[in-house]
Write a protein that binds this DNA or RNA. Structure first.
Lengths: 178, 178
DNA sequence: CACAAGTTTCAGGAATTATTGAAACTTGTG
DNA sequence: CACAAGTTTCAATAATTCCTGAAACTTGTG
C-alpha cells in the first residue's frame, strides 16, 4: 500500500484509502495517539469485511507484534470487535462503524485515562490552605479553582455526550448549537 | 524547583506549585503538547507577577533556547502577553488567567492547525466517485461521509464556543448540559 | 503427547521529538 | 561605533516513544 501522499487528488479507491489511512495516522499523532493505532483503526473503518492480523500486517507493512498489540488496544477502547469464524482458529476484526459509537468510545477511554486522574490531582491541590494575604497563594488558589471548575464542566458535558441517546445527541448538537 | 511528585499531598505552596506544573506537563504530553510548553504555561498561570525568560529558565531548569522558543509559541497561541517595563530591556511575560479565554485560545489554535486541514482532506476524499455496487467503495464512501459530518458538526460547535459571549457560554454550557 | 496454526510478549534497535548551548543577531546607550 | 544586555536560531545530542522480530506461549487435533 502506498504512502497516501496528501494533496494529490486520489484517482483510485486504493489511493483514496491510502490517503485516508495516512490522514488518520497524522491526526492521531497530533492528539497523542500512536500512528499505528490510528492507522489500523482507519484501515478497518474503510474495510467492509473483517480482517485478520495477517491482513493488517501486510496492508500496513507493520510487524506481527505491533499489529497484535495495536489490535488488542483498539479492542480495549471498544473500537473493534472480534469476529470468530467456525472451524477457523484465526481471529478476524471489524471496526465499529457508527461514528456516534466511535465518538463515545474515544471519549470514554480518554476521560478515564486522562481527565479523571487529572481531576483527582486538581481536587487535592485546590484544597491547599494558605494565607489569603499572600499574592502567590491567591494566584495559585484562584487558578486552581478555575481550572477545577472547567474540568468539572467538561467532565459533565462529556459524560452526558457519552450516555446520551442518539436522538438527544443530534437534537442538541445540531438544532441547538448549529 | 522539585519534581512535583504526585499523590503526596502537598504541604507547602512551593510543593503544590511544583505538582501543578508537573501535572500540566504530563497532561499536555498525552494530548500532543510538549512537556515544556505545558510547564511554562502552568508556571505562568500560577505566578501573580510577570516573569522574565531568565526566571522561567531557572524555575523550570530549562535552557535559554528552550525557554525562548516556548515563550514565543505560547505568545502565538495567545496564552501569554508581553509586559514591557519602561527603562528595562528585558521582557516579562504574564499568562492569560481567564480560563474561558484560555479555552478559546487553545480551541482556536488547534482547530486551525489540525481540524481545518483535516477537513479539507476529508472533503477531497469524500468526493471520489465510484461504483455503488462495489462493497469496498460503499464502505469507504459511507465512512468518509460520516466522518465528514462529524468533523463539520465539531467545527461548528467549536467555532460557536470560540466566539461565544461569556454569558452565552455559561448559560448553555451549564444550565443546558449539566 | 507431538505437532501445527495462531497469538502474545518484550528486550533491543529504529525513528521521532524535544532540548541544549553556543554563535549570531538586535537594540539601546555612552 | 563599540559595547552591553538581551533575544533568537539551529546543528548536535539527548530523551522518549515506537516498532521489530524472535522466542515463548496457547490451543485444537490426530
Amino acid at each position: 500500500m502506498s504512502t497516501g501522499n496528501p494533496d494529490v487528488p486520489p484517482q483510485t479507491l486504493a489511493e483514496a484509502k491510502a490517503q485516508f489511512i495516512h490522514l488518520w495516522g497524522v491526526s492521531g499523532t497530533s492528539w497523542g495517539v500512536s500512528k499505528t493505532l490510528a492507522q489500523v483503526h482507519a484501515l478497518l473503518l474503510v474495510s467492509p469485511a473483517a480482517l485478520s492480523t495477517e491482513d493488517i500486517m501486510s496492508q500496513l507493512t507493520i510487524s506481527r507484534g505491533n499489529a497484535s498489540m495495536t489490535v488488542r488496544e483498539l479492542l480495549g477502547w471498544g473500537l473493534l470487535y472480534k469476529e470468530l469464524r467456525p472451524g477457523e482458529r484465526r481471529e478476524y476484526f471489524v471496526a465499529e462503524k457508527d461514528m456516534l459509537q466511535v465518538t463515545r468510545c474515544i471519549i470514554r477511554a480518554r476521560k478515564r485515562r486522562e481527565l479523571d486522574p487529572m481531576k483527582r490531582t486538581l481536587d487535592q491541590l485546590a484544597t491547599l490552605p494558605g494565607d489569603a494575604a499572600d499574592a502567590d497563594y491567591r494566584a495559585f488558589h484562584t487558578t486552581l479553582t478555575d481550572i477545577q471548575q472547567l474540568a468539572t464542566a467538561s467532565d459533565k458535558l462529556l459524560t452526558k455526550l457519552m450516555l446520551a441517546e442518539r436522538s438527544w445527541f443530534w437534537d442538541k448538537f445540531f438544532k441547538l448549537f448549529l
